[in-house]
């Protein structure tokens, strides 16, 4: 969907690039003078969904898990929150919580970035929560803004990432079909061969219950530090392997567990979540999203 303004942006971008190159060539290469924590730059975590060794796509595209079960995905959504950045010397930057909630939707690639403005720095580690922290799960409604709201234009579409009967957000929702699912009560009685994984559970409000909140920490040293500088964008590109939900340490069979929601078994599924995330590479000093 190219439009004229994008073309103009592109040519402006090229122009800036040329000037930049010209400046570089005259002033020799102005080596990055190091971060100044008084300044801020753009930072993003990119949640690039994949399925095993393939790119991500919704039905009718099919995949096959390690047990040889063929499946298609119709819905993939998950919350990411409470992002923290760490420098090599151990300094920590905690993103202000109210700016720290993102809903990544498989059906909309534009949602794959968690975009932030953070102090300049060379960050070697990043952590985030897959899900919504327990505190926010218990906050009054007016504190549940943005993707956490029920607002038709900003919220989690259709209110589908929240349990009304047992107040709390659904952290990850994966739905699809698998032809091996039976048509009886143990499978999908509607005969549509659907699987539904709605995983949540923040630990309970007045009585303790299961907690499926997962904090994920990504070491960036291998794939590249995130060098955040004013006026530039640093993007930490993560691969999020949906196949790990089935094939991770707590591997399970889709037709044996076609529906997992608020139940003890959900703990097994959630324990596969941290293994979904892999830091592939970092794009530093980027001038826009197009190049990422």
């Amino acid at each position: 969907m190219k439009n004229p303004s994008q073309n103009i942006q592109a040519s402006v971008f090229q122009f800036i690039l040329m000037i930049g190159l010209a400046l570089l060539s005259t002033a020799c290469i102005e080596e990055d003078s190091g971060p100044n924590s008084e300044k801020s730059g753009e930072f993003s975590l990119e949640f690039d969904n994949i399925v095993g060794e393939e790119t991500f796509g919704l039905a009718p595209r099919t995949y096959t898990n390690a047990r040889g079960e063929e499946f298609s995905i119709t819905t993939l959504q998950y919350f990411v929150s409470n992002i923290k950045l760490y420098t090599e010397s151990g300094e920590e930057y905690v993103v202000p919580q109210e700016d720290s909630y993102f809903l990544i939707q498989g059906s909309d690639r534009d949602t794959r970035f968690a975009k932030l403005v953070v102090p300049e720095g060379d960050y070697s580690k990043v952590s985030f929560v897959l899900g919504v922290d327990s505190l926010r799960n218990t906050m009054p409604v007016e504190e549940r803004t943005g993707v956490l709201s029920f607002d038709p234009s900003h919220g989690h579409s259709g209110g589908g990432m929240y349990w009304g009967w047992n107040s709390g957000y659904i952290f990850l929702k994966l739905e699809g079909t698998c032809p091996l699912i039976s048509d009886d009560q143990q499978g999908d009685p509607t005969g549509k061969k659907q699987f539904k994984y709605h995983i949540g559970g923040f630990g309970g409000y007045s009585a303790p219950t299961l907690n499926n909140i997962k904090e994920v920490t990504m070491d960036l040293k291998q794939g590249g530090l995130a060098q955040v500088r004013e006026g530039l964008r640093s993007n930490v590109h993560l691969f999020v392997d949906v196949m790990q939900i089935f094939d991770g340490p707590n591997s399970f069979s889709i037709p044996e567990h076609p529906t997992v929601m608020f139940s003890d078994f959900s703990v097994n599924v959630a324990n596969n979540f941290p293994g979904m995330f892999r830091h592939d590479h970092t794009e530093n000093f980027s001038k826009g999203e197009e190049g990422l």
């Binding site: 009054p140 409604v141 009967w165 047992n166 107040s167």
Partner: peptide, 13 residues
């Protein structure tokens, strides 16, 4: 069952 803990969230159910 007390599944909802805030009157403001009751209607969602």
């Amino acid at each position: 069952d007390g599944g909802v803990f805030d009157l403001d969230l009751v209607a969602i159910n």
